[in-house]
Design a binder for these strands. Structure first.
Length: 296
RNA sequence: GCUGGGGUAGUGAAGCGGUCAAACACAACAGACUGUAAAUCUGUCCUCUUUCGAGUUCGCAGGUUCGAAUCCUGCCCCCAGUA
């Protein structure tokens, strides 16, 4: 099916493990990496942040002691970090890991990050904060007008202000991607039944609170404010509401579970359109990858 | 028991005689997404139908009216105040 094995001096394969949040991909990756001399690169747009440990369900110190992890704690929560940054970082790590004779594992739920690497996205221009600030003050209608006047092609999501602003920023510069994954990659998706995933997600919600998300969020909120980009996702806004007595603890847990569930669904929507993903249940995925890694 | 308020689609909640299958929000479901992606945005969401459209709804049963979720009567529930 793939010709990797016929390459003269095939590099270590790039093992890519994707799946929705709470599908168990991290635990699987650690187990396999430990067994086959792997190192893990987390493709996760939230665990890149320092200090956000509990709320992002970052791999624990114990887990990190078992296998080297990369891609964690890269920037402070108030710093910008983009898919383009990640792509560059991940490629560098993949090289380094291979040079050590180890197997790189790219593991994560941020589809864009994974795709940037495996489809070798060529990004266009960088963010232009000044321009963005100016455009952000305009309404979506005004932005459409601006595009019409400057011959800027509207994105498919033309009601998405972020996308329209980015389109203006790009000024029709092209972006590209490979039509097939980069060579030597093997891409596995963790398939999980819906109700199992739901159960795991709500169990994890409980776990987050036992581990002290409230305390963590309090510290982060004071330090970085509640409006920074990193703090707007997942559980932090909910904990904020709880701290301000706008929600009870029970409500926060319930809401977070649904937020996380919706995240899982969006992740799956993204992954579904990638025909190169080989989907397996957790145990089958392990068997499949073990077999694959044993031959190498 | 009396007085006042209320029972609307999965949930909350508008509507208070025609333009109502019924605003809005949430949930649910599907989708888009290359420099903020755990973000952001879109569609569907009573039933049947691919579309046009058709058929049943607004606690229950009657009534008034050309026409009712909206008015009247009775009944059943719920909440607040009070014997």
């Amino acid at each position: 099916m793939k010709d990797d094995h016929f390459l003269a001096s095939a590099p270590q394969p790039l093992v890519v493990i994707v799946g929705p949040t709470a599908s168990g991909k991290t635990a699987l990756a650690i187990e396999l990496a430990e067994q086959y001399g792997g190192e893990i690169i987390c493709a996760d747009s939230r665990t890149i942040y320092k200090e956000m440990d509990i709320g992002t369900a970052k791999p624990t110190p114990d887990e990190r002691a078992r296998v080297p992890h990369w891609g964690l704690d890269l920037v402070a929560p108030n710093e910008r970090y983009t898919a383009a940054d990640f792509k560059q970082y991940a490629n560098q790590k993949i090289d380094e890991i291979r040079r050590r004779g180890h197997v790189p594992f790219l593991v994560g739920g941020t589809g864009l990050y994974v795709d940037a690497v495996i489809f070798d996205y060529q990004f266009s221009s960088k963010a232009n904060d000044k321009l963005r600030a100016k455009l952000n003050a305009l309404s979506i209608e005004q932005l459409h007008g601006y595009c019409a006047k400057h011959n800027i092609i509207l994105p498919e999501n033309k009601n998405n202000k972020r996308y329209v602003i980015r389109a203006i920023e790009q000024n029709n510069q092209p972006t590209t991607r490979k039509s097939a994954p980069i060579s030597a990659s093997i891409i596995v998706g963790i398939a999980t039944e819906r109700d199992v995933l739901r159960t795991r997600i709500s169990a994890r919600t409980e776990q987050l609170f036992e581990d002290g998300v409230v305390e963590e969020a309090t510290i982060l909120g004071e330090k970085y404010g509640w409006n920074s980009e990193a703090m707007t996702g997942n559980i932090y806004p909910l904990v904020h509401a709880y701290l301000e007595n706008r929600l009870t603890l029970a409500e926060v847990k319930e809401k977070y579970t649904t937020v996380d569930w919706r995240l899982a669904k969006r992740q799956l929507t993204w992954l579904r359109r990638n025909p190169y993903i080989q989907w397996y249940g957790l145990t089958e995925a392990k068997q499949f990858l073990s077999r694959h890694l044993a031959i190498e």
